[in-house]
Design a protein around this nucleic acid. Structure first.
Lengths: 355, 355
DNA sequence: CTGAAAGCGCTAACAT
DNA sequence: ATGTTAGCGCTTTCAG
């Protein structure tokens, strides 16, 4: 019982009666070999269950056709659509995507980037534009192309492909103000190390500045984990009777006459809405809620969530195409701003008339 | 300006004044080299920004330390926790995970598995136990170890690591019956090509058989996409006045006196609950709803969702460990049943007293 | 259009 | 404990 070694180009070549070079050609440049020869080779190849060894190919071609991305966690649906689109577009061009997570911060992004580079990825995709200097250094030291997604920084040397977080948040806040809301509180994930959150926050604050109560309201702003639990806790903080009775429809409400909760992403928004309702606070009659992202579930909430519809699929495709072209014919990478728009639904209504 | 070629073992060896073999040793078997030498090598390595070429290492070691998994889509949170745990456990052992999707079925699982094998993964992980024969053939033809997750098939030759979908669904249905429900309808994703759904369905039906109305109720069962939209449409089908007024609390209800909707996963359950409520149907007073999976949001719904708490993190770790040991010292792979239990919360209550 | 041969960068016997 | 050397399996000049 001899070990039935896996067939390689050599075996295929022998069976087909050609040289290994020819085998390699029919695999990579079919146009450079006459059809008849190619057919013989193909026949031999599958008679032998030939499977080209990827490592060997990568080693001699100096490119892995694999890109890498680092996200905080798979648990957040925010990244899902994007990665789905990215992986799809890449796969169509026979590129693979290595997706890694920082385990919600339990391991550093730098470690993950280093792993990716060690694995030999041809390029890296990173969410947002704020990253440890060592990460950026590492990438440039090994000249690995990087594009930063979900953000657009025209004046930065970084290649960014995304939307205008600042402007969209500002527009969303203005929409709330146009509805008559005067006391608006912001619910966001922590701002440190997350420039998208920071930009959204700043955009919202810029608009809200116009309000008399702006300064006071800012002190109520909540920064929590992007989970339903986080949103729920935040609403607890904002409620009149913290820890009080959760029943009794109609009574209660939010501290200091707050009439709108502006959530900087949809996970937070749905969690906030649910928490509000659990406390018997009616949305949008007593308190308006808006989100950001437009997750699939947004329009099925009761009431449907008013939010910002982000072009994440488009972003995935744009980034995939740009990177592929860059790797294949050195087309320079360029930053790109993608359009997004408000999705007005029912969770935000006119501010209740003042007491 | 000479091209500053990336340093390799050779350059490092030269700078450190040792042989390439020694360099390789300090990288892979540090214990086989005296500390002093190792230090010299390490110093040289980072003076030169040395980065071992992964492809070369894979080529000569005949193993990539990369596993692959194929899921339908990233958009379904069901897989998130599992993949997070899997990737985490793998990363700790310096293994990578290549995650690919079938784009919700737009590309076949077989194609994706083939891609993974072409990429040189050392093993593959596949959800469920029902797969195209060609997929299984392919994997065995190239002797790629596979473990099937989220399912446990003791009598199958396949290595499965998961929970008892049938038994848990049965228990859940029994719980509903114990609450006095007599008319229970099942909401599931399509059963074809998804044995987990099939098993859950069969388990539920087995328990429900005891009911007089069992046969009639089965005709109301709904099979839809695992999305909020799918659940919403299903509830539409089940409602008394399809297309009728959505307001007017208290009136209306589900067709034929149905008092409970048993959803075979939480995405469907939350969507169903939301849709029910939108129609003014009270949960659980008028209709009880239960789910399966225990997603993070489950306990924050109003009312909190009664569901089945699945050990997905444990599953990720168990599979990672088993596969790593198998690859490293040939420990045989074995199937394993993981415990799961009902998470009783508020979305299911006593059946309303009969008209 | 096809073949011969020289690597790609690392690891792993085998020697010393 | 360390060095020598022969591959790993494919791609790619360079000839013919």
């Amino acid at each position: 019982m001899n070990k039935p070694r896996r067939a390689g180009v050599r075996e295929v070549a022998q069976l087909a009666g050609v040289s290994v070079a020819t085998v390699s050609r029919v695999l990579n440049n079919p146009e450079k070999v006459v059809k008849k020869t190619a057919d013989k080779v193909l026949a031999a190849a599958d008679a032998l269950d030939f499977l080209p060894n990827n490592a060997a190919r990568v080693l001699s071609q100096h490119q892995s056709r694999t890109l890498g991305i680092v996200i905080p966690t798979f648990e957040n649906p925010i990244y899902a659509k994007f990665i789905d689109a990215l992986e799809g577009a890449l796969a169509r061009a026979h590129f693979s995507l290595l997706v890694t997570t920082t385990q919600k911060g339990r391991v550093t992004e730098f470690d993950k980037v280093r792993e990716l580079v060690n694995m030999g990825v041809d390029a890296v995709i990173l969410p947002g534009g704020s990253h440890a200097a060592e990460t950026l250094d590492y990438l440039s030291r090994f000249s690995v192309p990087v594009v930063f997604n979900s953000i657009y920084l025209p004046d930065s040397p970084l290649i960014t492909v995304g939307y205008d977080n600042y402007g969209l948040a500002k527009a969303l806040a203005e929409y709330l103000m146009s509805l008559g809301h005067q006391r608006i509180v912001i619910l966001s994930e922590p701002l440190a190390h997350n420039d998208r959150a920071r930009l959204r926050y700043d955009g919202a604050v810029a608009a809200l500045q116009a309000l008399e109560s702006a300064r006071a309201d800012r002190e109520h702003d909540q920064f929590v984990d992007v989970t339903t639990a986080g949103a729920s806790a935040a609403i607890g903080e904002l409620s009149c009777e913290a820890g009080g009775a959760l029943d009794g429809e109609g009574q209660g409400g939010l501290r200091d006459g707050i009439t709108a909760v502006m959530c900087l992403n949809d996970v937070l928004a749905s969690g906030a809405m649910l928490a509000l309702q659990r406390r018997g606070i009616r949305v949008p009659q007593q308190v308006s809620v808006v989100g950001f992202d437009d997750l699939e579930m947004a329009e099925f909430l009761n009431p449907p969530l008013t939010t910002v519809d982000l072009p994440v699929e488009e972003m995935g495709e744009v980034i995939a195409r740009a990177l592929i072209r860059h790797l294949e014919d050195d087309t320079p990478l360029t930053s790109r701003l993608l359009d997004a728009s408000l999705a007005i639904r029912g969770s935000a209504g006119p501010a209740p008339s003042q007491g």
